[in-house]
Structure formats: C-alpha cells, structure tokens
Design a protein around this nucleic acid. Structure first.
Lengths: 163, 163
DNA sequence: AAAATAGTAAAGCATGCTTGACTAAATTTC
DNA sequence: GAAATTTAGTCAAGCATGCTTTACTATTTT
C-alpha cells in the first residue's frame, strides 16, 4: 500500500497543480475572506451573515415582493421572510405595502441599507484598486474579460434546472 | 426619495459592472455549483457536504493527526473528529494508530476515498478541458497565470491572524 | 361564494459548530 | 523512578443557523 500511496501522491499533485478551477475557487475564497474582514473592520455596518448577503442582490431598488425573493433564492417564502425580518431589525430593509395588491408587501432598502451596500461595494472597489496598482491595469482588464467569457460559457453549458 | 433611488441605482450598477472581484466570486460560485452537480450525478460517491470537502485538502496522504486537522481547519478537535467520523462511516477515511505516539491516531484516506478524490478531480479536469476547447488554451493559460499572481498578492496583503 | 394567492407565526430539524467532562498515553518534575 | 502535568483523542450535551413543514389570516381573483 505504501507504494500505492506514492503513486497517488503524484497523481493528486499533478492534478492539483494543473487545475485552473481549483485555483479559481481558492482565489475567490481568499479574496472573499479578505473582503469580509475589511467590511467587518468598518464595524459601522450591522453583522450581516452569508445568508443575508445572498439575499441582497435579489432585492430590486424599486422593491421586491417576498414571494419573488423566495423564488429567486430558491427557498420557501417563510425562509425568505425570516431573513428579511433579520435585516429589518438591523435597519437595512423595510417592508412597505404594495400599492397594487393589498395582500402583498414590497421589500425595499432603507437609506441606511443603501449606504451600507455602497460601503460594501466600496471595499471591493478599494481591493480591486490595490490589485490594479500591484498587478497592472492591463492584466486585470484581460483577466476581467476572460471572466466574462467564462461566465458566458457557464450560462450556455451548465444544465439549468428551473423549478 | 424616489429621485434618490434613481441615483443609487446608477451608482450601484456602475459599481457592479466595473467590479472584477464580484465577477470572480460569481464565476467561482457558478463553476462550483456545476462541479458539485456533476459529481453528484456520478452518484457512486457518498454524499459529501461542504464541510467534508473542506476537510479533505488538509489530509496529508501519509496521514494527519486529528489535532493538526483541527488546527488547519480552525475548529476544535471535537468538531474535526465529528467530520472525520462521518467520512469514516462513508468509507472515505479511516483512523489508524500513530506508531510514534500511543495517544495519537492518523487520519488517512481509504482506497475508496482515494478513488473518490481522483474522480472528483477528474470532474474538474474535464470541466477545464471543455473550457479550454471553447475559450482557447492561450487565454486560459494567461488567466491561470494571473490567478497565480493574485494568489501571491493575497498572501502578502491580507492581514493574517494566526491564533 | 369559492378558490387561489401574499404573507405571517410557530414549531421542528439537520448542520456544524461549541463547551464541559472524561480516558489514556507521554512528558516533565522532583 | 514515581507523581504531577501536559497532550491526543473521545463522548455527550448544547447552541446558532438556515432551512422546512404545518397552520393560519387577509386579500384578490374567478
């Protein structure tokens, strides 16, 4: 078995070295960690967890109905409701009645929520700026273009399962 | 407030469009989803959850002590032990006594675990291959090099907190 | 009036951790 | 070399998170 382990080691390392995707995952994770750390250091913003962060991009600025949010998140409306309730307590979101439908409510950002969001994005912009300073605009732009290409590839190639 | 929302929309979209990091995150997430789906479709492999996947790369092929695993994961040894126990039941890992220390055990891959790992990596390689077919080796290689540069940047720039 | 829809409320459950209490082996101290 | 301490690991209980299912109210549509 000891010899076998040796072979495996080689296989594994060869695979790891060559794999763009693993490096991409690693890179994204580390950058995300760094971003989270920086946002946390701002400390003005309330404690947003991953689930809250996932919710954010699905909220249209005109306001989004809870059911729609739930659909976009792929969870029950009760689950979405809980997340919204959290963010409501934190002052990031508010629910206001939907003028078109007495049953419905629209989930919208509060002013504080908008500002927090902008601050969060500013952190990412800042990190990108630092990255550009060190690595160079040209390379980052090229990298960004390839990201766009890959994103396109994913859309055409991943078997989408709309429930 | 309605006019304000309009301004915000512009700010937000401008920021989103320009941001490399967000696209990187999105890209990694989508590719990860696709990879997970493909591995799940293999269905020979047991049901590994994210926590298990995170554990894997910390296991040296010669075997790793539980305490070391826990340190690398940044969790208590009890937590690490539970994950190892799960994977042990699934037949992916096994614990064997450490010859150097009667108290200690070494966590190692079983043969099945090794094969599963290689299959998982094969999925990633396959996806990379498809990507290369569509996008071109040259661009992917360049992308990969930039990933390396960014990974280096992270290491030097992120404030590491070793507990 | 009946049925469907938007949302709420509450309880339950799996996950992924933690803390606390313990056993056994190794190391240190005297 | 025996006693005290540290270290490796286990067992069990507890807790926050992020969901779910079940049950309900209020409104709209048919």
């Amino acid at each position: 078995m000891t010899e076998k382990s040796g072979e495996f080691l080689n296989d594994l390392n060869a695979a790891k070295q060559a794999n763009v995707l693993e490096r991409l995952f690693r890179c994204a994770r580390l950058l995300n960690d760094e971003g989270t750390r920086r946002v946390a250091d701002l400390a003005e913003t309330p404690i947003l967890r991953a689930a809250h962060m996932n919710l954010m991009p699905h909220i249209d600025l005109a306001g989004t109905r809870l059911t729609v949010l739930a659909q976009r998140l792929g969870v029950t409306k009760q689950a979405a409701s809980q997340l919204v309730a959290d963010l409501e307590k934190m002052g990031v979101l508010k629910r206001e009645p939907d003028p078109d439908d007495g049953r419905a409510k629209r989930v919208v950002f509060t002013e504080q929520g908008r500002q927090g969001l902008l601050e969060g994005l500013a952190v990412l912009r800042q990190m990108e700026e630092e990255l550009r300073m060190d690595i160079g605009d040209k390379e980052i732009d090229r990298f960004n273009r390839t990201l766009g290409t890959i994103l396109g590839w994913i859309q055409t190639n991943s078997a989408k399962k709309d429930t």
